[in-house]
Nucleic acid binder design. Structure first.
Length: 455
RNA sequence: UCCCCAGUAGCUCAGCUGGCAGAGCAGGUGACUGUUAAUCACCGGGUCGCAUGUUCGAGUCAUGCCUGGGGAGCCA
């Protein structure tokens, strides 16, 4: 793709430093193929240093950063003088000869012949090259995205989403989009965002597409959805957002064991795809220990909830059967392994109404969570669904859920019910883990949190 | 909803037992032909989050409020 700046500048009246018509427009990432040639780069001035007869311009174009060397003898006096006073984030077209240079981190740099200013900043750029606090960076999120680190994260995120689609599309799954406006909660109404909905009263922003995927699985067999999800919980932790993306596959005629195999091959596919595409960025920009990611291959360890409780107790952490595995407990369990651990068969009382009970022990639900290593916690939750009509009706009543809202869902058990299972994975938690980030807010371009909705 | 912490220059922070508002970076001017967060010299830059109170005197102490950060619960 030719960048917009190139086309724009072509339409402009000729400026003082007009480009030579023969100079090729290229991207920083492709410079190695143009050594010795005269080319034009379009980008933004990330930084500048001067040393008498030399100015060093760091130019970022979205594909990389290259140092452009402006030598006094190679350009007009006007260009040389202006190059010393260009503010950070000036948008530029720079023409010059690509030269190999050992002193450059890229291995080559641009020997500048002409500099054309596309636009000068009208104010001083707020983000310097020194440290900034989190609050300030979040306020400047629209500009923070330009940093090398944020660019790397967004690229990994894009690859993760592509890998998710590749995985399911390549296995006969059909993409089915779940609605975002829904009439009721999956598990009660306390955690949902409300929106007014014409004469029908209130609607809610979806908390999960799962129930709809169950309906779609009865039509198409293997389905998945991938879209935004909303939780109105006042969660203030590094693992929570109020708006996040979730992928939710659902498969007819699948039991818990099959579901767990699907989770395992899915997670390793996504991690390996991200590693293959971004190993250098993960290691050099994000300082991720890529060897830990390389280990993320099947088989993942499988332990029951009962065994997890034992592991936690042996680690000296008091816990009674029936308690949820919280953040600290997750870390204890996950740190016992070098790859994600699958914890299955939780007490039914702490799980949602739609989980199928374990026929071997009715106290247990046929659910499974995948805990990422290195303290990243739960990235997947899922399991086998209750397929028996009477049992599901009883579960609805136990959870005090409004029966009418779930009549359509009960229909799925009235007309040709089958064993089925699925799961949901949080895209941001997965990306945070792969990138080795402290907080999920960096994994989404414009995070939505309880105390922040701008920019 | 609960617990903890912070708010001082554009940014990151220091400011002791209450006594003239500070530094680094960024910005401006200049020097330097290889800088990598360049260096060096000089210059400009303040509603100390807001309000009330205590005091001869408050950035500093007290109370309330606001804004943000970290964590818990809940979850992905």
């Amino acid at each position: 793709m030719v960048m917009g700046g190139a086309d724009l500048s072509r339409e402009r009246p000729r400026r003082r430093y007009s480009r030579r018509a023969m100079s090729t427009s290229v991207h920083v990432a492709d410079l190695a193929a143009h050594v010795g040639e005269e080319v034009t780069l379009h980008g933004w001035l990330q930084g500048r240093r001067s040393s008498g007869k030399l100015h060093f311009l760091q130019l970022r174009d979205g594909t990389g950063v290259v140092q452009c060397v402006v030598f006094k003898g190679n350009v007009t006096p006007e260009v040389f003088a202006e190059a010393d006073h260009l503010p950070q984030e000036t948008s530029l077209a720079v023409r010059g000869v690509v030269k190999r240079d050992e002193r450059s981190r890229l291995g080559h740099e641009l020997d500048v012949r002409a500099v054309e200013v596309v636009a000068r900043p009208t104010r001083e750029y707020p983000l310097g090259h020194k440290d900034h606090g989190v609050a300030f960076l979040m306020e400047q999120r629209h500009l923070w995205l330009r940093s090398q680190r944020q660019v790397a994260i967004l690229r990994v995120r894009a690859t993760v989403v592509r890998a998710i689609r590749e995985f399911f599309d390549g296995r006969g799954f059909t993409l089915v989009d779940a609605p975002i406006l829904t009439p009721a909660a999956c598990e009660g109404t306390s955690t949902l965002f409300e929106v007014p909905y014409f004469d029908l009263g209130k609607a809610f922003l979806t908390q999960s597409g799962q129930l709809y995927m169950e309906a779609a699985a009865m039509a198409l067999g293997k389905v998945y959805c991938l879209g935004p999800t909303f939780r109105a919980e006042r969660s203030k932790t590094r693992r929570h957002l109020t708006e996040f993306w979730m992928v939710e596959p659902e498969v007819a005629f699948l039991d818990l064991a099959g579901d767990m195999e699907l989770m395992e091959s899915f997670v390793s596919h996504v991690v390996q795809a991200a590693l293959r595409a971004h190993e250098a960025e993960l290691r050099d920009v994000l300082e991720r220990d890529v060897e830990k990611l390389r280990q993320v291959r099947p088989p993942f360890p499988r332990i029951t909830y009962d065994e997890a409780v034992e592991v936690i107790r042996r680690a000296g952490h008091p816990m009674t059967w029936g308690d949820d595995i919280g953040g600290d407990e997750e870390t204890i369990v996950a740190s016992a392994y070098d790859r994600p651990v699958m914890v299955h068969r939780y007490p039914a009382a702490m799980k949602a109404f739609y989980f199928k009970r374990d026929p071997a022990d009715p106290r247990l639900a046929l659910g499974c969570d995948v805990l990422a290593p290195e303290g990243y916690g739960e990235i997947i939750g899922g399991g086998q669904r209750e397929d028996d009509l009477a049992t599901l009706e009883a579960a609805l009543a136990e959870h005090r859920l409004p029966r009418e809202a779930f009549e359509w869902y009960l229909d799925l058990r009235r007309y040709g019910t089958v064993p089925h299972a699925g799961f949901g994975m949080g895209v941001e938690r997965c990306v945070a883990w792969i990138c080795g980030l402290h907080h999920v807010r960096e994994t989404i371009p414009f995070p939505r949190m309880t105390e922040r909705i701008t920019p």
